[in-house]
Write a protein that binds this DNA or RNA. Structure first.
Lengths: 221, 221
DNA sequence: AACATAAGAATCGTTGAACGATTCGACAAG
DNA sequence: CTTGTCGAATCGTTCAACGATTCTTATGTT
C-alpha cells in the first residue's frame, strides 16, 4: 500500500494556496485575460478571504509568472511579449530535447501513449479544445522521461504560461490539428529507439508550432 | 537613449521582496542552517516588519525551495535529501549540457573567461571560499549560452538550492580545488568549437562533483 | 517502569480595520 | 496644447485579535 504519495496532499492546504489554485484555473481557462487587473478588494470579497490571504496567493502566482506585480498599482494577468514566446520555446527545446534523447521508461511511455491516443480520439470527435489539452499532456509526459521532479515542475509552469498565449488563437483547429499526427510520429521514433531522429522531429515540431503562434500573436499587439 | 532597461528597477522594491532578499542571503551564507525553524515572531520583530509582510516573504522563498512550509508548524530552512542532490545534478546536466552545445556568443564567453580567471586567482591565493563563488559564477555563465532568461533564472535558483548542501563540506579546498583546472579545460573546448567533447567533459565534471558531494553528504544524515 | 491520556503553553492561520503612500484622471491655469 | 494641482481610488504595511493546531509537560493507569 503506497501511502507515501498521498502524503504530499496532507500538508498542502492553506487557504492562500487554495486561492492560488482557483485563480490559476481561472487564468488558464481564460476568465481572466492577459492585461486584466485583479482588484484585491473585489476578489477577496467574492472569495470571502481577507486581503492578506489573497495577497499571499498573488505572490505565489506572481512567482509562476502568471501574474505581474506592479508596485502600488496592483496585480495584472501577465501579457507575454513575442520575446517571451520565443524564450518559452527555447526552454522547451532544451527540456523536451533532453527528454527524447533518453532511454524511455515503461512507466513514462505509457502516459505518453495515452496522451497521443486521447488527442487522436478528440480530433476524430472534432473537440479541438480537448485536442489542445491532450497535446499539453503529451508534452508534459515527454518531459517526465528526464525523470526529474524539478524539470517536471518547470514544464508545468511553462505550459501554464504558454496557455496565456493560446487564448489569442481564434482558430484552435488550425493550431492543434496538424500536431496530432506528429505526436504519433514522435512517439514512434522514441519507441523505435531512435533518439537522434526523434530529436530532429521534435525540433521541427517546435519550430512549426512557434511560427504558427508568433504569426497569430504578433499582429494582435 | 535606452531608458527601457532602467525601467525594471523602478517597480522592484516592496518590503516583502527586500525581506526575502535579506533572508535569502542569510540562508545562503549559512547563518540559517538546513532544518532551522524561522520563527515568525522572532524575525518580524528583529527586522521590524509586520507578520503579514514577513509571511509574504516566506512564500517567495518557499517557492524558490529554500524554505519549507509545514502547515501550522512554521517555515524551516530546506533540508535536501540525497535524492534532491541527484535531481539537482540531473537538471544541471540538462541545462549546462544544452548550453555547451551551442554556438557561444562573444558576450557570454567574456563572462565565462572572467569567472575562470577569478577562480584561478582565488585558488592561487588559497581563498577557497572565493574559489567556490567563482565556480558558481562560471556555471551560471555557462547557462547564459542558452540565451534564455528563464533558464538563467532556473539556474540561479538551482545554485542557491545547491549552496544549502555546500555548507556540509567541511573541507572546501578538497571540494573546489580540483575543478579550477577543469573549468579552464572546458572553456578551451568551447572556444575551440568542439561541442561534443565539451559536453563529454562537462558530464564527467558533473559526475565527479556529484560523487564528491553525495559522499560527504550521505553519512551526515 | 512504560505507556496512554489530558491539560496548558506556544505558535500558526486568518481575519478585519486602520492609515500613510502612490497612482491616476480630471480640471484649471499658463 | 502643455503643465501643475487636487481628490478619489487603491495599494502597502501595520496592528490587534481569536480560533485552530501542534508541541510539551504533567498526570494517571496498567
Amino acid at each position: 500500500m503506497d501511502l507515501v504519495r498521498d502524503r504530499s496532499r496532507l500538508g498542502r492546504s492553506s487557504t492562500a494556496e487554495r486561492v492560488a489554485d482557483i485563480l490559476r484555473d481561472r487564468i488558464i481557462e481564460g476568465m481572466f485575460k492577459p492585461g486584466d487587473r485583479l482588484s484585491e478588494e473585489t476578489i477577496c470579497e467574492r472569495l470571502e478571504v481577507s486581503r492578506n490571504t489573497l495577497r499571499e496567493a498573488f505572490r505565489l502566482l506572481g512567482h509562476e509568472r502568471l501574474l505581474e506585480h506592479r508596485l502600488n498599482r496592483g496585480v495584472f494577468v501577465r501579457v507575454l511579449s513575442a520575446d517571451d514566446v520565443a524564450d518559452l520555446y527555447r526552454v522547451r527545446r532544451v527540456l523536451e530535447g533532453a527528454a527524447v534523447r533518453r532511454e524511455p521508461t515503461a512507466r513514462a511511455l505509457a502516459v505518453i501513449r495515452e496522451a497521443v491516443a486521447d488527442a487522436e480520439r478528440a480530433a476524430a470527435a472534432g473537440d479541438w479544445h480537448a485536442v489542445g489539452t491532450a497535446n499539453i499532456r503529451f508534452h508534459q509526459a515527454l518531459v517526465t522521461l528526464n525523470d526529474s521532479p524539478r524539470l517536471d515542475e518547470a514544464m508545468r509552469q511553462l505550459l501554464a504560461e504558454l496557455r496565456l498565449v493560446f487564448h489569442v488563437m481564434e482558430n484552435p483547429r488550425a493550431f492543434h490539428e496538424p500536431f496530432v499526427a506528429r505526436n504519433r510520429e514522435l512517439l514512434g521514433l522514441i519507441e523505435a529507439g531512435e533518439p537522434d531522429r526523434a530529436a530532429a522531429c521534435l525540433d521541427a515540431y517546435l519550430d512549426d508550432a512557434e511560427q504558427l503562434l508568433v504569426h497569430a500573436y504578433e499582429p494582435s499587439r
